[in-house]
């Protein structure tokens, strides 16, 4: 009987202790959670005499001034969508194809290429009508063909569609023959758009137009 009493008392003690720990833990947990809302700090300049409201307005204005003005292009590489925007308003939305993310390895393993569409802010650097494609080495390696020595053997007409907007490092927003693949990630890094959609984008943009790819 005594053993059972002791055991029961021990169980009660363990139970109460665990309750106490849980209660204390919860107090600690609530305290930690509350700190996320309240803990923040900044350095202060006692000489500064600008009111914080005015300073906030100035900061907002500074950020606002960084927004792109006029026409700009946004490319969502995850959803394969291109948005032509003017002063924040979407004026054209188009289905595109972006980089496949595939890695191409040259036989022998000397060189390799990663077919990603670059992400970040870019500018339209060139505008070309009826562009020709000067095939780079990887295009031949991919087809398992020998790399030509003459430049003219690299030139291919028609594959880039009617228009191309260059945004640096050999990347273009260009037309395509493979309209069935629009909406999929199949390119070597360029942004493929249907010629009809690209015509509008081409006409609206100029050299220096900003391109945001994410």
């Amino acid at each position: 009987m005594k053993f059972w009493k002791v055991l029961l008392a021990l169980v009660a003690l363990v139970y109460l202790s665990s309750l106490a720990i849980v209660a204390l833990s919860w107090m600690h947990h609530l305290k930690l959670s509350a700190e996320w809302k309240t803990v923040w700090s900044f350095e202060l300049d006692p000489k500064a005499r600008v009111k914080p409201e005015a300073q906030n307005a100035a900061l907002k204005k500074k950020i606002q001034e960084l927004h792109p003005k006029g026409v700009y292009i946004m490319v969502d590489s995850a959803e394969n969508r291109l948005y032509l925007k003017k002063d924040g308003q979407t004026i054209k939305e188009a289905l595109v194809s972006t980089g496949s993310g595939v890695i191409l390895v040259e036989p022998g393993g000397k060189r390799s290429w990663q077919f990603d569409t670059p992400k970040g802010e870019f500018f339209v650097k060139s505008k070309i009508q009826n562009p020709y494609w000067v095939k780079p080495d990887w295009a031949f390696i991919e087809e398992n063909e020998p790399i030509p020595k003459k430049m003219e053997d690299r030139v291919e007409a028609g594959v880039l569609g009617d228009y191309a907007l260059g945004f640096g490092q050999g990347y273009f927003i260009h037309g395509t023959l493979y309209t069935r693949l629009l909406g999929r990630n199949v390119t070597h890094g360029c942004v493929r758009v249907a010629d009809k959609d690209l015509e509008e984008v081409f006409k609206a943009s100029r050299i220096g137009t900003r391109i945001y790819i994410y």
Partner: peptide, 30 residues
């Protein structure tokens, strides 16, 4: 006890949020 203690500490925290910022309100942060 734990719930009331948590409530009290939360109330205290709300009152003293943004530690040290108060006296600089007239001067502004930089």
């Amino acid at each position: 006890i734990s719930i009331s203690a948590a409530q009290v500490s939360r109330l205290k925290r709300t009152a003293t949020s943004a530690v040290g910022s108060g006296s600089q309100v007239q001067k502004a942060a930089v």
